[in-house]
Design a protein around this nucleic acid. Structure first.
Lengths: 293, 293
DNA sequence: AAAAAACATAACACTATGTTATGCCGATTC
DNA sequence: GAATCGGCATAACATAGTGTTATGTTTTTT
């Protein structure tokens, strides 16, 4: 192709940074394996034969593709290309995750990411089936095909600004003894811990609304329906003139599990993203306890 | 790709017909140049890393294309692929040429052909400009940039079956002394030769219709308009219940010129087609005189 | 625990591809 | 028409890539 482009063996050699005889013989050899001459001489210039012109487009495409493969492989080495498939709880897909991803992609132009939000059971299935590289879930109890790393994040009380408790600097179960709560499903781990905190302080927990997601609870608070104890991660997005956030005592952790398939080797890019995600949770983390399966 | 496909170094080696260590090292080397490992081991099987999967499609395309290039080059060597651009007189494009091309293409599945019919002056231009590989023309007087090979073909008298001369076995100028003729343009070589034949036998040539193409003359005869002396090549297509063909004496050749650009090296396929075309003219040829420029 | 299978490594051989030196040929110049 | 010059091919040789066989290592199987 260089010889075609420059119409000269000497120029082509110079362009490719090799010697002129090398090009001469490469052309001769290729012509021999093809079975027909590649060039005619005409006024001292090199003119490709019609046979070569017939192949020229295909050859050019091969060269382009190979160049692209080379570039892409370099991008991969520099962690600038690749694809990550992430399964996560619906709340993360809309609140915390997008910011992390945006930051992550900023320096990695070739990288693409799939996000699939669903319930924990489904996320677990996906990990086992190796359909995803990385998952964010909660209530995870361990599974032989899934490697997990648990992170406890802080939870807070979120309530309307005009609520009678809005002026308290800290909220305790006793403060809520006559309040009807918005909380997560009664069979969820988090609810059980919350319930235990109430029982420990001999306070009855009254239910107003039972929802699956923290985000939904926050939205209800925003609408002035009532108050809730939720992950600080979700609550922080709702802080505004009409909604306030207060620490809740005792500390009740919300246990997140970062999961991935055990068998499937994670790409270096995936490992890098998992690290970036863990770092992003650092500000919300409780350091008291931590378990690795 | 073989290693990906078979999930085993050993099988891949067997498939490619080389030794297992060769494959091992090819994979190791490629992984080294790429900068990341290509495979993970899992239950004793080879599983491509996500990085490799990211490149897989491009690599497959390259392999396919290179295979195609190899096949095409073989087809070219076997004269089974390529392209020929032919410029010809309009009459040939519709009558004689299609049959020759059909025969030529029958054994050459990869070959394509462009036919461009036009007047001789334009055909000459195209040869000089090297826009075409091969030309069929007449009235050619030679040109330094054009190589030509002349072929004289027989001409015949074509006339309606119910014409008074239809029973003659041979037609001469004397037979036509009171007939108005359909003939080619008066400044054409062929007409001049025809006129000379009439003059040699002291017969006056009467004009009925003057046309550029033999085919048009034949068509007029077919319509019962009159009779004409035309190339046997064109006449033969019109032989029917209503149109008869008779030898014309004296023999007046119609001189065709097969032309091609001097400078441009002809592809082997073009040479082959030119030969096939010459052969196809053999039945119509007059062997008395022949000139090569 | 032993045997077998699959792969990696080592040592070596050959071919493709690179080098430098040099000869040949056509185009230009005198 | 002789001389010169640029461009290419050829020759002789060096090196790297890619192949081989022999053997070691790890994992799987029995």
């Amino acid at each position: 192709m260089a010889a075609i482009q420059y119409g000269s063996v000497t120029l082509a050699a110079k362009e490719m940074g090799i010697s002129q005889p090398a090009v001469s013989r490469l052309l001769a050899d290729l012509g021999h394996t093809f079975g027909f001459p590649l060039f005619d001489r005409r006024d001292g210039r090199l003119v490709p034969t019609q046979e070569v012109r017939f192949l020229q487009l295909d050859i050019q495409r091969v060269l382009e593709l190979m160049g692209q493969i080379g570039e892409t492989s370099q991008s991969i080495t520099a962690r600038k290309a690749g694809h990550i498939r992430i399964a996560c709880l619906p709340g993360f897909a809309t609140s915390h995750l997008p910011a992390v991803i945006a930051q992550f992609l900023k320096d990695r132009p070739g990288v693409s990411i799939t996000i699939e939000p669903d319930r924990p059971e489904r996320i677990l299935e996906w990990m086992i089936d190796e359909h995803f590289d990385f998952g964010i879930t909660d209530g995870f109890r361990g599974h032989p095909a899934v490697q997990s790393s648990d992170i406890d994040v802080r939870t807070v009380c979120i309530l309307p600004a005009k609520h009678r408790l809005a002026d308290y600097s800290v909220i305790t179960p006793e403060d809520l003894k006559d309040e009807k709560l918005i909380h997560t499903l009664k069979d969820s781990d988090f609810f059980k811990r919350l319930l235990k905190a109430f029982q420990d302080s001999n306070t009855k927990l009254l239910t107003l609304v039972e929802t699956r997601q923290f985000t939904a609870a926050c939205e209800l608070v925003h609408q002035g329906v009532g108050l809730a104890v939720v992950s600080e991660l979700d609550a922080i997005k709702f802080a505004s003139d009409t909604v306030v956030i207060r620490p809740f005592m005792p500390v009740i952790p919300h246990r997140l599990s970062l999961v991935r398939p055990v068998q499937k080797a994670p790409s270096m890019l995936t490992l890098e993203f998992m690290h970036a995600f863990e770092v992003s949770l650092e500000p919300f983390r409780i350091n008291i306890e931590r378990a690795v399966n």
